[in-house]
Design a protein around this nucleic acid. Structure first.
Lengths: 250, 250
DNA sequence: TGCTTATGAACGATTATGATTGATTGTGGA
DNA sequence: TCCACAATCAATCATAATCGTTCATAAGCA
């Protein structure tokens, strides 16, 4: 087997399987361990792969991060900033709706000592609220395993028993023409209703949600005050024709 | 298995389940406990996770949630025996009400693969049910911090939308004359209603509940089948005039 | 032939692993 | 609460796997 052929073979295998082991390559190519090592060293120098103990992996993309990143830890600092800013709109004694979601979750530490009554449809939120000693109602309903959010007719019916001074929604996208959107229509229905039961609604979003359009529409932009961070001036100008935009002061 | 593969695997699992146990990882990866420990230490140093006693959790999340721990594991073995026995009364496809409580909690592992729909008013239960892949509705309502039970008019109203084939209640005392009792009248009201919506009700109790009388009455003895363990024959004889008593076979 | 390059084997050095130990922490029951 | 017991922990050590280096041989080419 030619050196070039081996190199191509290694890269093809790596592309398929994300990782290759040296022993595996020794067996499948018939070359010696030394040769495979030299191959890997060469390919690493030309940035085609990264060596690890026992084999090699695809470069750059540490396989580890992506799955974790898009969840709660992504943009965590930004979310905390947004949450702290949003909490400044809460008055003593308010009745508050807190949507399920990672950004709204960050609001919780800023809500204590305000003598609030909080209603939420988020499983993780009710526990955290409780730890802060905040009087909390959970809507209940059918639980969505992935997000820990309660949705469905039970949730809708439960919500209708309440009226809110202030409502905080997490969203997956906002767009001047398409309004606020989120992937799940069931969740969209809950957000929409909660907002309609509140005197004032705030939509919380990190910069990655700007101009994104998700599957289910929640409502038009003007139905809520948008709280964002790190947004370009041009984008802001377009949005401000449609709704009030509060940009987090850094 | 390459070190990187294991790391990636751990993080993927963690991302899915929010927590991982060391023993769980030992079994599923085939690596030794020491290796898994070293993996977790490494991943913690690169801020990919946080270690806790017995396993690891997603980073940042424990700041608000350390106090969820369930301390009430008293008479755990007995409760598990009772729960396993009680589960034998559940039929395929049943709609089930599971009361909040530590004894009813132990029922959950015995309920999977029965194609059930479960309704509960217990916060801790909904998580465990979800882990077992069981379709679960939470009543919602006002959350009682100490027990994680939802109570109040919201809960009552939510319950009235359902009918159950079978209802499992945890109780704090049972007595031939005073019936089933529990300390909190709000919880008593929920238990009472749930039972009245079910074709069949089982009251689960460990031996410490025998002849105890608590503040709030739930209902008379004959409204439910009592499932107990380690009860004296004399006590049993007195009870059996009032209701059906199932003593756990050891 | 003489020169270069690729290869494989052998060496000690390095790293990962698994088992063991005693210390620490959590749990169950009085 | 307290104590006894079990689970988990960090640290250590011996072993196994992997590493980079060196050297000798083989192959390709003028």
């Amino acid at each position: 087997m030619l050196t070039n052929e081996r190199h191509a073979y290694i890269l093809r295998l790596l592309d398929e399987k994300q990782t290759v082991k040296i022993q595996e390559l020794v067996e499948s190519t018939g070359a010696s361990e030394s040769t495979i090592r030299r191959d890997l060293t060469d390919l690493e120098q030309s940035r085609k792969l990264e060596r690890v103990f026992g084999g090699a992996i695809l470069p750059g993309q540490n396989l580890l991060e992506p799955s974790i990143k898009d969840k709660s830890t992504q943009f965590l600092d930004e979310k905390i900033r947004i949450a702290e800013f949003a909490s400044s709109f809460v008055q003593q004694g308010d009745s508050v709706f807190l949507d399920a979601g990672t950004t709204t979750f960050q609001l919780i530490p800023f809500l204590k000592d305000k003598d609030l009554v909080v209603v939420t449809n988020g499983l993780t939120l009710v526990e955290a609220l409780n730890d802060q000693g905040i009087t909390t109602y959970l809507t209940g309903g059918l639980m969505k395993p992935r997000t820990g959010a309660f949705v469905g007719s039970h949730t809708i019916q439960a919500l209708q028993n309440y009226r809110f001074d202030i409502c905080f929604l997490g969203i997956n996208g906002f767009h001047a023409d398409y309004g606020y959107t989120t992937p799940d229509p069931e969740e969209a229905a809950v957000k929409q209703l909660a907002s309609s039961l509140a005197k004032k609604t705030y939509a919380l979003a990190d910069h990655s949600k700007a101009n994104k359009i998700s599957f289910a529409k929640i409502m038009d932009l003007d139905r809520a005050t948008l709280i964002v961070d790190e947004i370009s001036k041009e984008a802001n100008a377009g949005l401000e024709k449609k709704t009030t935009v509060k940009v987090v002061d850094r």
